[in-house]
Amino acid sequence: MATTDNTLLIIERAHRGAVETQFADTLFFVRELHRQSGGVHVALRGLAASYAVDTTYEAALRIAGRTLDTLPDPRRLLRQLLDDGATVFVEETDLSALGARARERLLPGVRRVTGAELVSRWSDYARVWFF
């Protein structure tokens, strides 16, 4: 449950660069904010809902003889964020849009929420930031 000094970070823009971004993606900074602030809540919506869906896909590409395997890994970072104690929501509608089995592949610990329910909670937070 949110407290009066909590921050809700809404992430809806996803997959914003792989080769140029690598480790320094949105969730990297969210994790750092979680550390600095003492705790954040994260809401994944839009295409960012895909961050909460497990996959066996390994992000790597071969270029100029190099296997570049340091590309962004949002599921790994999301697991770390959950281990750090952050609360993570994913919007039901956007999760469903990813396929009939997306719900079965939801990362453990991520909470499903409707869009309306999330909006109704905004006033519980001291800050609501689109990230």
Partner: peptide, 16 residues
């Protein structure tokens, strides 16, 4: 622009 979408990665993959 970089850091907006995966366009740059797509360009590099396409070039390769």
């Amino acid at each position: 622009a970089p850091h907006r979408t995966d366009l740059v990665t797509s360009a590099l993959r396409l070039a390769q």
